[in-house]
């Protein structure tokens, strides 16, 4: 029973921390100047692509991102690859900073950004997905519901 309380406690702290971080992130995003890369794609083509590959990320949608914001310029959408970490980190700081945001999970060694198995080697896109619902990579092998909420 004591264990259950501890687990519940962790979940509560996690939820509070997530809320807090969420509020923080909103404020930070206001301050971030996202410089949109120059593109050779026409505005109509961009909006067409946006319909074909819609974003599932409310925060990114609110900020009015289109394809080139994250992917950079391209000619053929088929050549576009999932983002590399450094592309995400252009706005999100460095990997350490991201890990700090979930450092309340360190104690149980399940910080997804600095975990027991993968340390800082996981790709952001392994969990956080733009065009499909996000997933929890840890759940490929673990009962993650005990540790954390859904992936933002």
């Amino acid at each position: 029973m004591k264990k259950l309380f501890i687990v519940l406690g962790i979940i509560m702290i996690a939820s509070i921390a997530f809320l807090y971080q969420g509020m923080n992130a909103k404020e930070q995003s206001k301050k971030t100047d996202v410089v949109l890369p120059a593109t050779t794609l026409s505005a109509s083509k961009l909006s067409e692509l946006k319909n074909d590959y819609p974003s599932k990320n409310d925060q990114h949608k609110k900020l009015g991102f289109d394809c080139v914001t994250c992917h950079g310029d391209f000619k053929d959408p088929k050549e576009v690859l999932p983002l590399e970490n450094k592309q995400c980190l252009t706005c999100h700081g460095d990997y350490k900073k991201v890990a700090e945001r979930t450092s309340f999970l360190d104690k149980n060694e399940v910080n997804p950004h600095d975990g027991f198995h993968h340390k800082d080697e996981l790709d952001c896109a392994s969990c956080h997905r733009e065009h499909k619902p996000s997933v929890n990579y840890c759940a490929n092998c673990h009962d993650t519901k005990v540790w954390m909420k859904a992936t933002p």
């Binding site: 004591k2 264990k3 399940v110 027991f116 759940a139 490929n140 009962d143 005990v146």
Partner: peptide
């Protein structure tokens, strides 16, 4: 297992 770190469906629970 008690800490829910023992893999998929590998968690053990304690009861009085």
């Amino acid at each position: 297992s008690m800490e829910a770190k023992n893999g998929y469906e590998g968690t053990m629970y304690k009861f009085q």
